[in-house]
Design a protein around this nucleic acid. Structure first.
Lengths: 319, 319
DNA sequence: ATCTATCATAGATAAGAATCTATCGCAATA
DNA sequence: TATTGCGATAGATTCTTATCTATGATAGAT
């Protein structure tokens, strides 16, 4: 009976409900012979009579009753799906899967928060992991969008800048250099450095920076998280280059200083990316559009926090 | 999307499962362009992409995942129905609704018991009510088969004898006539009679019997149930004409006697009936066939009980 | 760089589905 | 008995569908 058509079920349902071929025909804007024909075919396929006629009344047989229930169930499934589909089209529902590089966790929640407020039906999943895993997910198409601090090179992907990502030199607030200005790279390079593990985008950029200036770094420690590094700085274990975004609201206030080193901040950027050739879901497209628009506001925000004097991390007059 | 076809869903399901258009085509014995075409149509109807292709891999979009679930649900419904239908065809399941006249309750359970044993999957519903209600149900086609003691006349129905229904005269075991033989109708008609309510088939047959012989009955009581009548007989309130089937195994033993009256037992019959024009369900047909075959055995059974001397109701030598 | 696997597209065709009009047969009803 | 209402049947038509072959495009794999 897999060869029955939905049309037949539709016709059947109408008859079963109205208990009349003629009424059903009217309801469906068909002629009566047409519905008769449909039912005939359906009955043949099933191999059991669905209706019986005593006098002029129509009754459902047991098989008919079962089929009626089946119909209702099937239509239920259909309309459920139709609802979901139209919600997806109208952005009333849907899912957005983001995978972001560790450092991005300092600002993506805020981004997502605003987006979610605007589209309350959208379900967002944020995965925070290291660059390597993010690239892995990117190439096996596990998410909708990816956020990285560096354009993926080995993988064919579309990437676009949407936010600045300035790298700054951080030291303990009472570090001798904390109040100096225009510190040379020379002086910095003598300091003990704390770094993320090799492979970290920040580390790569930092190393390139010093390499270009023919300096070597004293890497005193390698730590697996930005938070740990900040703690280490406060503990006077050394200085570090980190994204200014790591100095988010929750950073230990007043214990860190941004050093005014020549050539800093290193201007890196945040990129969103997705596999080239991927047809983005409507939700993803919308989020992307939202990202582009929000970037202005976000830049502003991070400036105010980190630069324009509202940031408790900066000593007076340093900006 | 009500215009999508089941075929499309079938194709879609195969692709979603195999994650390949080509594999799906092979599985369905189609060419690859055919499945592409089907999916194209389905996608157009739904208005959302269902698959995405990154490199040579196929992935389901969110909409696709939803549709896949929907498909599974729908196919589930279908196969459930198919199972039920094929069970119905094979008598492995099904329902038999019987409506019988009150007096028939003394033997139908035995009939049904045997039938149920033979077809354990069949669900039987037995409704016992008075003749009037049975006819009502018959004319509004509420059940599969009906059992009556008299052919329905006002209603157009098919009826067939399947069992004898002898009416006998019952009296208390110590009634003066209990030991007499060849009692004339004359003598009986002086006795106080206990009867069922007007409309009862037994009553109608009894009245006709006496009318044909130009006798009138002294109806002393009208009672609504055969059991009540038997109790009344035992209580010496009178005698009565009842179906011998009412003297079933559970009858009060040794307290009732069948009087050997001329012209008795009145030979009535049990009929099964159904609305003419009704296409009986396979279950009903089977039961009917079973009834015809079982009638011999049942006749035998009731004979042995009521006539051949094994019956405790009969005094020695009366048969 | 070439080959191979995979999906998309185009064009053709044969099969079949859905539908109609006209008419028949039956049963309930007036 | 005549009429009416309802479903079945027959035959014709139109349109769609499902399908094919042939070919093109793209991206991994060798």
């Amino acid at each position: 009976m897999r060869h029955s058509t939905l049309r037949q079920l539709e016709v059947f349902e109408a008859i079963a409900r109205l208990k009349s071929f003629t009424r059903a025909a009217e309801e469906l804007f068909l002629t009566q012979p047409t519905v008769s024909m449909q039912i005939k075919k359906l009955t043949d396929e099933i191999g059991l009579p669905l209706f019986e006629q005593i006098g002029k009344k129509i009754y459902l047989t047991d098989a008919g009753k079962e089929l009626y229930q089946t119909c209702l169930g099937i239509f239920e499934h259909f309309s459920r799906f139709e609802m979901i589909a139209s919600d997806m089209k109208g952005l009333k529902s849907g899912k957005l899967r983001l995978a972001v590089v560790t450092t991005a966790k300092y600002f993506t929640p805020r981004l997502l928060g605003m987006f979610c407020q605007e589209y309350p039906g959208i379900d967002v999943a944020l995965i925070v992991t290291n660059r390597e895993r993010v690239l892995e997910r990117l190439s096996s198409n596990q998410d909708d969008l990816y956020i990285l601090g560096q354009v993926p090179d080995a993988i064919d992907a579309v990437a676009e800048v949407f936010l600045d990502n300035p790298l700054v030199v951080l030291a303990a607030a009472d570090h001798p250099l904390a109040n100096e200005k225009r510190i040379t790279v020379d002086r910095i390079s003598d300091e003990p450095f704390i770094m993320r593990e090799p492979g970290s985008g920040t580390r790569m950029a930092t190393e390139r920076f010093f390499l270009e200036r023919s300096h070597k770094l004293k890497v005193r420690m390698e730590l697996g998280s930005n938070e740990a590094i900040k703690q280490a700085i406060v503990g006077r274990l050394g200085i570090a280059v980190l994204s200014r975004h790591t100095l988010a609201l929750d950073a230990p206030m007043g214990q860190l200083a941004i050093l005014d080193v020549e050539g800093f901040p290193i201007e890196r950027h945040w990129y969103f990316a997705y596999p080239s050739g991927k047809q983005l879901s409507i939700v993803a497209q919308t989020f992307l559009e939202y990202l582009r628009q929000a970037s202005d506001y976000l830049d502003d925000l991070s400036c105010r926090h980190a630069i324009s004097g509202h940031c408790p991390l900066l000593k007076d007059g340093q900006h």
